[in-house]
Simulated scan of single mutants.
Amino acid sequence: MSSSCIEEVGLQDNQWFRIVNDLLSKAGVAINGPSPADLQIKNPDFYKRVLQEGSLGLGESYMDGWWDCERLDLFFTQALKAGLEDQLPTHFKDTLRVIGARIFNFQNRKRAWIVGKEHYDLGNDLFSRMLDDSMQYSCGYWKNADNLADAQRDKLRLVCEKLQLAPGMTLLDIGCGWGGLAQFAAREYGVSVTGVTVSAEQQKLAQARCQGLDVTILLQDYRELNASFDRIVSVGMFEHVGPKNYATYFDVVNRNLKPDGIFLLHTIGSRKTDNNVDPWINKYIFPNGCLPSIRHIANASAPYFVMEDWHNFGADYDKTLMAWHARFMEAWPELAANYSERFKRMFSYYLNACAGAFRARDLQLWQVVFSRGIENGLRVAR
């Protein structure tokens, strides 16, 4: 039976079970089996809910305790490698959301603040325990590292070297997070940094972190920027821009970058040129987010810049996310007083699902370096 017909047909419980079981078997996943990737079902309504609601039903039923899995990361790796996400039905509300994203600008100036309030303002207690000491909420660089702190420090060094920072330069950090990169660049490279964020909690911590350094942290939308900088960097922010704003985003970068400047874009990416949003992630983790494709970035940047370098180290995000999950679980006894058990399941699901997606190479992590055409080319660090 095709998945498109599932919502229209009344099925018996054993038929819902059989359809789900057949789907999972394609990924080598069993129901109530002994493997760490197998699903342990606690509520028999799970099968119907997942087939009727797709990704949203799968995630919400986990949050509700309807099923468990010893290794969620393995489950998602196997499921995505087998292409199961393309075989689940698309819920009608998801279809409306995709159509709406094509018509409306869900990342306009007013709505751009939503992700700051709903995700990044969750609590500095949570992020300070889950992340490394520099509070980097983006992929680490594990080429020579064997732990999270070194991977994030190497990522910061890689970014600064690619930008060819030198004392006295000015650097704009679009989406500066908790100020880790701004602090590193100002302290290690002697540059003057201006960071912008839409999260009030990030701004407070970033200002405290960078006290005494030549760093300014602004609480504002990137579209309001109008200055002149030697270098511009954006790490883990482009995922919140949205296809309808990509042209505007690169226009802002062009407007604020000096003629001989360099711009580095660090972003998660998708192989598909579409409105790349998972409905569960959109509802519970990153509202109004959307993953760009190579074509999105190429088309939006072409009027302004030469693409000097494209570096994909998406496989490193698997290690980063699993390190975050280990730290999150280790810190949970301290966090439990401020967050519910349902939140714990939600956040664990998010970290493991994303790790599985990167391990399956379903998602990518790109660092792209742009200039306006540097004479004799640009030798980019690795």
Score class of each variant (00 low, 15 high):
W16F: 10
V20W: 01
N21A: 13
D22W: 03
D22L: 13
S25V: 09
S25C: 06
A27E: 06
A30C: 11
I31T: 01
P36S: 04
K42I: 06
K48F: 02
R49L: 04
G59D: 01
G65H: 05
C69L: 01
L74K: 05
L74C: 11
A79L: 07
L80E: 08
E85F: 14
G100T: 07
G116Y: 07
K117M: 14
L126H: 07
R129A: 14
D133Q: 13
Q136W: 01
W142G: 04
A145R: 10
D146V: 15
D150V: 15
K155T: 14
K155G: 10
L156M: 15
L156D: 13
L158T: 10
L158P: 05
V159G: 09
K162P: 08
A166R: 14
P167A: 06
L172Q: 06
V196P: 06
S199P: 01
A200P: 08
Q203I: 10
Q203R: 15
Q203C: 11
K204A: 13
Q220A: 14
R223Y: 00
R231L: 10
N245D: 00
A247N: 13
V252I: 14
N254T: 09
D260G: 11
G261R: 12
R271E: 15
R271V: 06
K272W: 09
D274Y: 15
N276A: 12
Y284D: 01
I285E: 05
L291E: 03
Y304R: 10
D309S: 15
A331I: 01
P333T: 10
E334Y: 12
A337Y: 02
Y339G: 06
S340I: 04
R345C: 05
S348M: 11
Y349D: 02
Y350P: 02
D362A: 13
Q367G: 03
V368L: 11
V369H: 05
